[in-house]
Write a protein that binds this DNA or RNA. Sequence first.
RNA 1: GCGGGCGUAGCUCAGUUGGUUAGAGCGCCAGAUUGUGGCUCUGGAGGUCGUGGGUUCGAUUCCCGUCGCUCGCCCCA
Length: 422
Amino acid sequence: MITKPKGTQDILPNESEKWQYIEEKIRNIARQFNLHEIRTPTFEVTELFTRGVGETTDIVHKEMYTFLDKGERSITLKPEGTAGVVRAFLENGLFNQTMPQKLYYISPIFRYERPQSGRLREHHQFGVEVFGSASPFMDAEVISMAYSYLKEVGVQAMQLQLNSVGCPKCRPAFNAALKAYFEPYKQELCENCQIRFEKNTLRILDCKIESCKNVIKNAPKITDYLCTECSAHFTALQQILSANDIPYIVNPQLVRGLDYYTKTVFEFVSTAIGAKGTVLGGGRYDNLVANLGGKSTCAIGFGSGIERLLLLLEAQNRVLPIQKNISIYIAPLEEDAKMLSFQVAKLLREKDFAVEMDVMNRSIKAQFKYANSIKANYVVSIGHDELQSNTLTIKNMQTGKEEQVEQTKLVQYLQAIAKEDA
RNA sequence: GCGGGCGUAGCUCAGUUGGUUAGAGCGCCAGAUUGUGGCUCUGGAGGUCGUGGGUUCGAUUCCCGUCGCUCGCCCCA
């Protein structure tokens, strides 16, 4: 038997209903915040990510699905959402439109990793990217979107962690301070961190290994090294959040895995599921647009894994309110009732009812059993009696009551019922 | 890339201290008198016991390899 590739998932009907529910919430958030959907290709030219995300990041250097196509072009399945959106922003001249440009997407994301709970090789992200505003109010708006999204779908006990990673103006000083600090402890750091020390000192702060944590504890804090501009921005953001009842904690160790971030970075972490607790992460990336060849444009965004969100909701025993519309099952009781059954089904569908009729040649009993199993609200049965008298028998499956209705008045009858139910 | 656990029906799992026709529950299909569901009862379909090799008179059971799944580390959503 052929099985699905490692780290992928089939989303079966039962599950896809939950996805639709989440997507509905996303579209509603988009409406409230005036976000517009953008859809970019599932694969891009590899260079977009090496230049955009950063060559030294794990995502780029060991987790990308990269291959040569038949024209010898290096192609990569998108390992994150931002780079593609920025590329589209540039390629389609969106920078010439009025600012801000507020975009969102729901997209598959591919990373070659060892799968485990909450981590797949293909997962899906709801992401937001907003271009053109340098205001801390923009940061606050994006965080507020994330906050209400998670709240709306019913996530509990989440914590917003906030930090600023500065900008090219202040980061060199901080980097130097970090290097100076870690230098004497170099031998005590884990193998990985020793490499980080040379290549990307900042990343050491994110190490989860105990021995490193001990050293990190007293490391200089970025917040002490921010330039006036970055510092003012960070303070302003915190004031806005506080004034609007969006709880947060500042985590000076918070470092994100992608190199393009500047100033604000944030994560929503759930305390309910330990290590894989990050449900949503993002930040400001004021230099990415310029780095990819555009004119200098501020931007901020976030990505949120849908599988992980569903997992979290599951862990919190949250049952999603999936509503079912009124459905009608048509039961032809004899062979010669089938044609009329089909016509009735067609008519009702045209009137927007959800209708199903027997196509399995089931016995009468089995038809009712089936109608019950698909949770049909009404069964319309058609047999010899009905054919003779031009009526239909409608059974309410909840009350068990039956009624005879003239064929010409069926639609009216059902519409009246539907109205009552609503 | 590194480490742990597990692979028996569509699903959840039991089982065989190695022995002939491999089990349960759920689900599916059919029946319990005549045109009616949800409960109950009866019957049925469905398994090369992940896969390759070894030990053995005999392996689904023991051993080794392999593949797959799963959980954790790294990293991330």
